[in-house]
């Protein structure tokens, strides 16, 4: 059997990923995570002195903490298998990427294991996040200087 022929057979046999179903699942679970996040930030605003402008930091910390607990007891990967992007895109997914790497590399010690592998998965998120933020800020700065838009 030739390569092309086999690739045709492979495409015929392999089931198509259920995109619509995946999108719906991601929407519901991602939405639920954000709903919980909203509840957490409401909690911080009602019971502590945080405004909408300042509540972001404690909320993110709390959500990452929740995701740490869920990752630790092995539940987050199950949520991830069900929800896909729904649980990967919110900040809990970032937390999961960091914490799962930390758990994984605990056996190599704190410095060479946890320390150097903590951002194995999340490192590129941090890097490209910072780089793209820089370019977005640069473009906006140029536009403001030219008088096209205001801050």
């Amino acid at each position: 059997m030739e390569k092309e022929q086999y690739q045709k057979l492979e495409q015929y046999v392999t089931p198509k990923p259920p995109y619509l179903k995946n999108v719906a699942k991601a929407f519901v679970v991602g939405g639920l995570i954000c709903l919980i996040g909203q509840a957490v930030s409401l909690f911080y605003m009602v019971f502590f002195n945080f405004t909408e402008a300042t509540v972001g930091n404690p909320t993110v910390a709390t959500m990452v903490f929740f995701s740490m607990i869920l990752t630790g007891i092995g539940l987050y990967k199950r949520i991830g298998q069900f929800a896909g992007a729904g649980s990967a895109v919110p900040v809990t997914g970032f937390g999961n990427a960091v914490i799962s790497a930390a758990i994984e590399h605990r056996s190599e010690g704190f410095v060479l294991g946890v320390g150097s592998n903590l951002f194995k998965l999340a490192g590129s998120v941090v890097l490209f996040g910072v780089v793209s933020a820089f370019f977005v800020a640069l473009i906006k700065y140029i536009l403001v200087t030219l008088g096209v838009v205001s801050w």
């Binding site: 092995g74 987050y76 929800a83 649980s87 758990i103 994984e104 998965l121």
Partner: peptide
Amino acid sequence: ERQFRYPVDYGAQKPQT
């Protein structure tokens, strides 16, 4: 898994294949 793919507890969605 850690050798070939992601950390075990990483919540990536695996395809049906």
